[in-house]
Design a protein around this nucleic acid. Structure first.
Lengths: 272, 272
DNA sequence: AACTAAGTTTCAATATATGAAACAAAACTG
DNA sequence: CAGTTTTGTTTCATATATTGAAACTTAGTT
């Protein structure tokens, strides 16, 4: 129910929107379920679904008459992850950092005002693949989100700020664009962003942006921990390592000349 | 250059085809490069690319005028991975198996006649996310591929066999549909499939299909090793564990009633 | 068997995509 | 730095694909 409903980009836009609805359900879904939530009439939706199924973007379960996201997406995403995400480049540096600090490390990028996690290392335990990469989170109340927003140049920043949900997750959540803007200003000066239980009780994090030569945010990297184990002051001890890692990734990323994930204005899914 | 060129599924099909071409390049690509490999005239391709970019499926680098796959795909794929892949369900079992055997374990599904890896555990070393999941491999010369093909019911099998590249990777590669059919017949009887250096010299593997109640292949799981460390005979010692793991995953997957990845007939990318 | 809901097909009206060709803007070239 | 080539963008009449109300079929209920 958020976002600018705007542009449909013809049939393709509609088809992608359908894909997004199926994704939102998070489970195999029936035609009629999609229909109730759909902006398009029965026949239109029906044909879109047929097309997507025949294309392998949706998988149709004949027995139950349900649709899920198709595995073709996984194949395509692998390509996206390799060519348009910082993850493959950042991998060794993220490894080093997580090993040195022994805490959970996140690597994220901006996607349409939201945070998209592209890599992660858990405190211990090797983690398994897609379960974490590909996840989305809010921009306005996460360490990585604020770190990237803080360095977004003006036209885009306003757009991104307008897309935030400003839902009060905790006492500490910043719930107005004004409060957020002030915080971002501060972050831009220090080059470091904190999440002070703004997204989840007892969970804190320190994050640094990964910046291009012209100071545009390519991504962000963060160290997350729990108040049960560390205080905010403890986190600040990670600042130097974090900034160094971010700098290394930025250097490495520069030659590859990263595609700015700009100008995207597809109807966003829920964003809290 | 392969596959059935056939169905375009209107604009949506064309757009997805463009996406696929960008994926095939594996690097940021210019409009003109896409144009040379494109079946559509300039203006058409141009508008498709514009639409895809505005939708976040492609990322446009203004400076270099190149296009890459967009991060939106990663978000969508996360959904696909969670709802349409065996990976989340199989995770604990794959963990157990890889820990017990100390060898590389692959979890795969069929996608349009090809093998799509949806999870992986390395012999040691925690591996990072998308770097492995999302990869594709050939069906006709991998352990998991043959394990799944062997249990494909007739109409689909013929279709799948027709999509194989039959490229001779090694001496041992089966390079004709006939030879493959014979091998599949054998696999169906034993319930176990071997890769005897058919894809890569010195690399061998043992695989078992993960079957639904009506014996359709939901996926396959394999243990891979090198001839430098193990013989084919050694591998057969893993048979019991492998089959048990496959059975456990199948049981767990049943209630979720898996979307059969059927009837897909989108123009396949290169398939060797 | 009668009823209801879910899924599929039809078809004329309409919106959309098409693509040849003209145009504009970069990128070379001498 | 004018001239030339290549690459990228726009135009517009035409062809085509999409639309959606309604009819229809099939599956599920009572």
């Amino acid at each position: 129910m958020s976002g600018s409903e705007g542009h449909t980009d013809g049939t393709v836009g509609k088809a992608l929107d359908v894909l997004e609805s199926v994704a939102e359900f998070g489970r195999p879904v029936r035609f009629s379920e999609l229909l109730t939530n759909s902006r398009w009439p029965k026949a239109t939706l029906y044909r879109l679904i047929q097309t997507l199924s025949s294309q392998g973007m949706l998988a149709h379960d004949k027995d139950r008459n349900t649709y899920s996201l198709g595995v073709r997406l996984i194949r395509l995403a692998h390509g996206a992850w390799k060519q348009a995400s910082l993850a493959p480049i950042a991998q060794p540096f993220v490894d080093d950092l997580s090993e040195k600090l022994g805490e959970t490390v996140h690597l994220a990028q901006l996607d349409n005002g939201q945070v998209l996690y592209v890599d992660k290392r858990n405190a211990r335990a090797p983690i398994s693949m897609f379960s974490d990469a590909g996840k989305v989170g809010p921009g306005y109340c996460t360490g990585v989100g604020k770190a990237m927003l803080a360095f977004l140049p003006e036209p885009e920043l306003t757009e991104a700020l307008a897309k935030q949900a400003y839902y009060r997750h905790t006492e500490a959540t910043l719930t107005t664009p004004e409060a957020l803007r002030a915080e971002l200003c501060n972050i831009r000066e220090t080059g470091i962003s904190y999440d002070r239980e703004e997204h989840e009780e007892k969970i804190i994090c320190i994050a640094a942006p990964i910046l291009s030569l012209d100071d545009r945010p390519l991504g962000a990297i963060s160290v997350t921990t729990s108040l049960l184990r560390h205080s905010l002051d403890d986190l600040s001890a990670f600042e130097t390592d974090l900034k160094q890692t971010a700098a290394k990734i930025a250097t490495e990323a520069q030659p590859w000349a990263f595609p700015m994930q700009n100008n995207q204005n597809y109807p966003s899914t829920r964003s809290q």
